[in-house]
């Protein structure tokens, strides 16, 4: 009998039927409802922004992969998520060339310069967003009047009104409108309902640690209750905090690993978000609070090492 060759590999010889790619695919599915919502609320131009952002993100990923002569990480689809998330943080009438620049910065300077997926200290989408926010403040602050909102003459988001034009408070839409998302604000962050829908899918698929998002929202609720005392619902349901709670702070790469660390991270983000909202010069603080907390991730990791089995008291 001819000698048969057998494969040698270390145990375990079976592996769970998932990969980074399937995980990212699930996240993309979870992001879809909010994307569809944005097209309904803001028109086809919104779809254009998302598409441009995703395409540029994928191209940037591909080119850096080729330049660095590395395995094509474009296939793990993480760049698609960065593209989508970046688009979701933009105003609905942003010029497309800004989208191109931002998406490029997100992938190249937010992720690839650090070594690609798994090595980036900051959430890439938020790096892109922070960049365009500082580089193009004019365009980023422009929430133009849309034909979809005949009653609204303002170009400001609810949070801007609360912060800078408190006398126009009557112009803020009803709470139900805020929940549905049909009001001027950034693309994908408006609809609490659609975002939550996607989030529930991620929780069912066990890709995110739900307590983390709850801790973030609770922290913001409590601080808002203490500082603002009124309009709490507006503070909670407008702005970027639902998008942040459900899709930004749950990014695995840039947040602590242990459950305890994740909750500490979320509470930190909540505190910083409120500080920026109430005492900073920007109406919304979600983006910068997360970037700041990303910096603390290694430190939090160091102090939240899971207590191993066999250390319990008898």
């Amino acid at each position: 009998m001819q000698q048969q060759k057998f494969v040698i590999s270390p145990a375990p010889h079976i592996k769970a039927n998932h990969s980074v790619r399937t995980m990212m695919l699930d996240t993309i599915i979870a992001l879809l409802p909010a994307g569809i919502g944005s097209v309904i609320f803001f028109g086809w131009y919104a779809a254009g922004i998302i598409l441009v952002s995703v395409v540029v993100a994928m191209l940037s990923e591909l080119v850096t992969n080729l330049l660095r002569k590395q395995h094509l990480s474009i296939t793990d689809l993480s760049c698609v998520i960065t593209g989508i998330l970046f688009a979701y943080t933009l105003p609905p009438r942003i010029p497309l060339w800004i989208v191109v620049i931002g998406s490029f910065v997100a992938i190249v300077f937010g992720k690839q310069v650090f070594g690609g997926i798994g090595f980036n200290p900051f959430n890439p989408a938020l790096v892109g967003r922070a960049f365009v926010h500082i580089a193009f403040p004019q365009q980023m602050g422009n929430f133009v009047v849309l034909p979809q909102f005949p009653d609204s003459i303002t170009t400001a988001t609810p949070l801007t009104i609360l912060k800078h034009f408190p006398e126009q408070i009557a112009k803020i839409p009803e709470i139900t409108t805020l929940l549905i998302g049909n009001y001027p604000s950034s693309l994908g962050e408006t609809s609490v309902i659609l975002l939550t829908l996607g989030f529930i899918y991620l929780v069912i698929k066990k890709h995110v640690f739900a307590l983390m998002s709850i801790a973030y929202l609770l922290t913001i609720s409590i601080i808002t209750f203490i500082i603002a005392k009124e309009n709490i619902a507006i503070y909670l349901f407008s702005g970027g905090i639902f998008l942040a709670a459900m899709f930004m702070i749950t990014d695995p790469v840039t947040t602590p690993v242990s459950s305890k660390g994740k909750v500490i991270f979320a509470i930190g983000c909540g505190i910083l978000t409120c500080l920026i909202r109430f005492y900073g010069s920007y109406p919304e603080g979600a983006c910068f609070s997360i970037l700041l907390m990303n910096l603390l991730t290694p430190l939090i990791d160091n102090y939240t090492i899971v207590k191993k089995f066999g250390m319990a008291k008898k």
Binding site: V20, D76, G118, H207, P252
Partner: peptide, 8 residues
């Protein structure tokens, strides 16, 4: 195998 994405 690929880089750890710290999914936990």
């Amino acid at each position: 195998y690929y880089p750890c994405i710290r999914c936990g």
